[in-house]
Design a binder for these strands. Structure first.
Lengths: 353, 353
DNA sequence: TTGTAGGCGTTATCAA
DNA sequence: TTGATAACGCCTACAA
């Protein structure tokens, strides 16, 4: 068991000072060719690597990014992480992941844990509970402490920071327009309660698309799901709710679902009701998932490009971090924040004509 | 912008020494009630939190766990992370995630990055490329440096460390036995090339189950997929391969797929060929995914309980970490490592009778 | 009851 | 060309 070597140990072995070793390893011109080689050889032999923690303490930066997301067992969030990790890694950053589990308390606790020096900045998507309570003090606090935050997907106007979002309204309109073009007359929407910002925006897009085509929205065609964590019970409930939708209105010939689970579940229920897809009923869902691609019938979706979102968020954060370095204490106060919008696009599969 | 306060600053403000502040905050009896309250009040006011990095450096432990997995965009791995994160968090640990992307080089680089003081121990699942090259020096090296590793799912006998695995052979036998019980006579297997340990083991289970029932394996019923990263091309290739399987052998009435993607794809191709599921063809797949539950028909699967695996791995690692603390330098050399086996179970859905 | 000093591993500055 | 020293933020043994 060869424990990690430190500069100190190398110094002792070679009978030179610590600073000589340090300089030699960093190819300083101050050091003679001779000792440099000696030191480097020894270091290589013992596989010396500078201790990250010590460096972090010294440099007052950790080169790691903290991610806080509601859950990881969701293709969209995994994709985002993949994207973040890619650019982070490329730029020499690590990524530390914490899950809020949609809970306000866990979000707060995790932020505090990480904010105490473990990371240089946050990339996060807000927990549902937080959105519901509209308590954002933990965000403002960390920002005030000088730690930058980049929010993605579930963002909130109250907080001034960089953001990466999807054109939810526009994406929803694309979906609904497609259905209208394809001849649907009675288009239902399956969405979330309004406190989930993306659900609200997608609902808005749905309404705007209808309006653009002079179609009056009907409340019997709008289903707002109380979105709890995924559980078997919840799934049953979801199916029941969708069944109610079909019972309430037997003219439905198009469905826009704000996520792919709603989409595939709608397809399942619809087929149980004898609807032919896409002949009698067409479906488009918002999604970045694996479900819509592999389900039968495969679902046409509005792809939100989770990985791109992640990449974009990481770039924004790192840009800001490196900026801070440069402008040694530019206490400008009124900083300018960016909001990057990632374009969605419609992927046509079997659930539309 | 109120930057984070340090002990030093508090000390200066209150005109006491740093150690007095430190002790006061930790409720030391050495400190007078008076100053203690004064210090604590001030600390609370300025929202003092000890700096993690400084603590890590001092204590020579970071209280964070490094996870290295091939990819995160796979339900199984997400589940494992969820499990790890749960127990880690409960025990005051953070979780830092790195992705190998199935590449040997990235695995090595990421390990080195994290091993330099950033974490206390690893939980990992080996990249395919590493398994192929059978080069495990980076594992032995980090273990030799005194950093514990827990491997899960894709493990390897050559490395002595704690492991968490699934009873792959037994699970596969459960699946195939079920098919046999249900009357299947010609059961095909869709599996990976043998260098993927879990694929190999599941294939072995398949063969053993057949043997138990005195059924001779037929090479025309065994399809070994060259498993690349998921891409559209790869998917087409997969469908082609499966089509070949059906062409080669028109008596197939049961399929055991070693993962759910193979399972749903087989179902898709089979239905294109006019097979009724489960009447004419029954399918069971290994899985921990969302696909099999929501596909049509939903797939019967051998559930591998990814979250439990994660929890178990985290418990093993943390146990070992805390052990190290106690036994101040017990250089015993021949340590004893555990291998925890997580039981699988068969979930019956629509793809079996 | 309070303060001083040393150390965790590095690097940077300045002195030798 | 090399080395001593201080600093990053914290804790603790020991001294006052």
């Amino acid at each position: 068991m060869r424990k990690k070597v430190t500069l100190k140990q190398i110094a002792k072995e070679l009978d030179v000072s610590i600073s000589t070793v340090s300089k030699a390893l960093r190819d300083s011109i101050e050091i003679s060719e001779d000792t440099r080689q000696k030191v480097q050889a020894f270091a290589k032999l013992y596989n010396y690597r500078p201790n990250n923690i010590a460096l972090s303490l010294k440099n007052r930066k950790t080169k790691t990014i903290g991610i806080i997301i509601p859950e990881i067992v969701q293709h969209f969030f995994s994709k985002v992480i993949t994207g973040i990790e890619m650019v982070a890694n490329r730029k020499g950053y690590n990524v530390i992941v914490a899950l809020s589990n949609e809970s306000f308390d866990k979000e707060v606790i995790n932020m505090q844990m990480l904010a105490n020096g473990s990371i240089d900045g946050f990339i996060l998507s807000i927990a549902k509970e937080t959105l519901q309570q509209q308590d954002y003090h933990h965000f403002t606090e960390t920002i005030n402490q000088g730690m930058p935050i980049v929010m993605f997907d579930r963002v909130v106007n109250e907080i001034k920071c960089d953001k990466v979002i999807v054109d939810d309204v526009k994406g929803a309109k694309k979906a609904v327009n497609k259905l209208i073009e394809n001849g649907c007359k009675n288009i239902a929407i399956i969405t979330t309660k309004d406190y989930v910002s993306v659900g609200k925006l997608r609902t808005q897009g749905y309404l705007e698309a209808l309006d653009d085509h002079k179609i009056n929205p009907e409340s019997s065609l709008i289903l707002k799901i109380e979105d709890k964590l995924l559980s078997e019970d919840h799934l049953d409930q979801l199916e029941n709710d969708i069944e109610q939708l079909f019972k309430q209105n037997d003219k439905i010939d198009g469905i826009f679902a704000v996520n792919e689970l709603y989409g595939v579940t709608a397809a399942k229920v619809a087929r149980r009701y004898g609807y032919e897809i896409p002949e009698a009923l067409q479906i488009v869902s918002f999604s970045d998932g694996v479900l819509s691609r592999h389900s039968t019938p495969s679902l046409s979706t509005i792809s939100q490009h989770g990985q791109k979102i992640g990449e974009s968020a990481a770039e924004l954060l790192i840009k800001r971090l490196e900026m801070e370095d440069e402008e040694d204490f530019n206490e400008d106060e009124d900083e300018i924040f960016e909001t990057v919008v990632i374009e969605t696009n419609l992927i046509e599969r079997e659930s539309t004509k």
